[in-house]
Amino acid sequence: MTAHFSQSATILLMVAGLYIVIARGNMVKKLIGLSMFQSSVYLLYILPGKLIGGTAPILGAGYSVYANPLPHVLILTAIVVGVATLALGLTLVVRIKEAFGTIEEDEIAGDMRSDGSKPGRGRKSA
């Protein structure tokens, strides 16, 4: 268990985040779950780059063992993407709250259904 501690943490974050997205109806909670899910990816990339006894990736004499810098760069990008997604998602939730008066997906579902299907029976909505 301890040997694969980092992997276990990664998987735990991944599964917990996904579970929140699936099970929670509250839109903000969903976004939090989504963020956790994304964080697991950061761990997945960065952890294997760390070498025991390695240093920061500085070019210079005497340093032969150093952490791989590439994952850090990649994950910086991924974090930016994640933050942007979260920001956009929260903005949308604010607008949804304004438009529907709620951020519970179940309560909005009825409104999404309107206008459906059977010709002539659709009901107008905003």
Binding site: L18, I22, A23, E105, G116, S117
Partner: peptide, 12 residues
Amino acid sequence: VNAANWRTGQIA
């Protein structure tokens, strides 16, 4: 009739 008006969680 109400196709694809799923909850987000269902898709996930």
